[in-house]
């Protein structure tokens, strides 16, 4: 384990023991976050059932095949909704942290020696777990009800893993960063949910990317969701679906580059703009 170094104390505290490492604290935060999440039954049930309900609705409405590919429209939705599930951290953290900032939870943490990085790590790991469970449920339903074929090649699962991990981390960090935008906890869900819904519509979750006007695609290309969906389509639609992409290719290299950039950019944004206190508290 890495130990964070502490400056030699100028105080009279004799042989002061080392501060707990940021890594250990991050894991401990994650354990506490997970515990809290799974005990908040109502929120947990809705978090997990939301993408399932969307998948069942969309999969049932659009059961036709996509011309010239042999793919069904419901398969497209499975891939899109997995992208959306991977980004739920953006919404959950954006709203959740804004509420915690208002109710004084963050202020209390700020008064302890907990480093902000450990707090972020706990949130991100919790999101990783929640998104993972969502994705597994979506895959099970996709296979059982909507003719989804799970890829058999190890390389596809490798792609799935890095798209998923980079996607969750990037959107979690982005969620932590945007949690500072709402003026109060009570306005948070309106401020954060709107851009998330818009992103879903322009990033190929509900509407295939090639049916969008050029300028909307260009806006979507700035944000990670479009690239996450593209990565998941590469995994679950395979070569048959590549012709549906505007560029006739899944551009996995670009996906990796842009998602990686969002992780780094998101972390920088968090570390530089994160506020423990609400705006009306100085």
């Amino acid at each position: 384990m890495t130990q964070t170094t502490t400056a030699p104390s100028v105080s009279a505290v004799a042989a002061s023991p080392a501060m707990p490492s940021t890594l250990r604290l991050g894991l401990s935060q994650a354990a506490a976050e997970n515990r809290t999440f799974f005990r908040r039954r109502d929120a947990m049930i809705f978090t997990f059932s939301f993408p399932i309900i969307l998948l069942v609705i969309f999969g049932s409405i659009f059961s036709s095949t996509v011309e010239g590919t042999g793919l069904t429209v419901s398969q497209l939705y499975v891939a899109g909704l997995i992208g959306s599930a991977t980004m739920t951290g953006f919404q959950n953290l954006g709203i959740g942290i804004a509420l915690n900032r208002d109710d004084g939870t963050l202020k209390r943490l700020a008064g302890t020696p907990l480093p902000p990085a450990a707090y972020f790590m706990g949130k991100a790991l919790n999101t990783l777990l929640v998104s993972f469970v969502q994705v597994v449920i979506l895959l099970v339903i996709g296979v059982a009800l909507f003719d989804l074929d799970l890829p058999s090649a190890a390389s596809d699962w490798l792609t799935f893993t890095w798209v998923f991990v980079l996607g969750v981390l990037g959107s979690s960090l982005l969620g932590i960063a945007v949690s500072s935008l709402p003026r109060s906890g009570s306005s948070a869900s309106a401020v954060i949910a709107m851009p998330f819904v818009v992103l879903q519509f322009i990033s190929g979750v509900f509407i295939p990317a090639r049916e969008l006007p050029e300028w909307l695609s260009q806006i979507a290309a700035i944000f990670p969701l479009k690239w996450m969906c593209q990565g998941f389509r590469a995994v679950f639609l395979g070569e048959d679906g590549a012709t549906l992409e505007p560029t006739n290719s899944y551009e996995l290299g670009r996906v990796a580059l842009i998602l990686g950039a969002w992780v780094i950019g998101g972390l920088v944004l968090c570390l530089t703009t994160f506020r423990w206190k609400s705006r009306n508290d100085g």
Binding site: T6, S9, T36, R40, D102, K107, P113, P115
Partner: peptide, 21 residues
């Protein structure tokens, strides 16, 4: 600093979190 924070205790007015733990 973290070192200093570890030597200071703060009991604030109230926290309103749900308290699932």
């Amino acid at each position: 600093t973290r070192e200093w924070r570890s030597r200071v205790g703060i009991v604030l007015q109230s926290t309103g979190d749900a308290g699932e733990m």
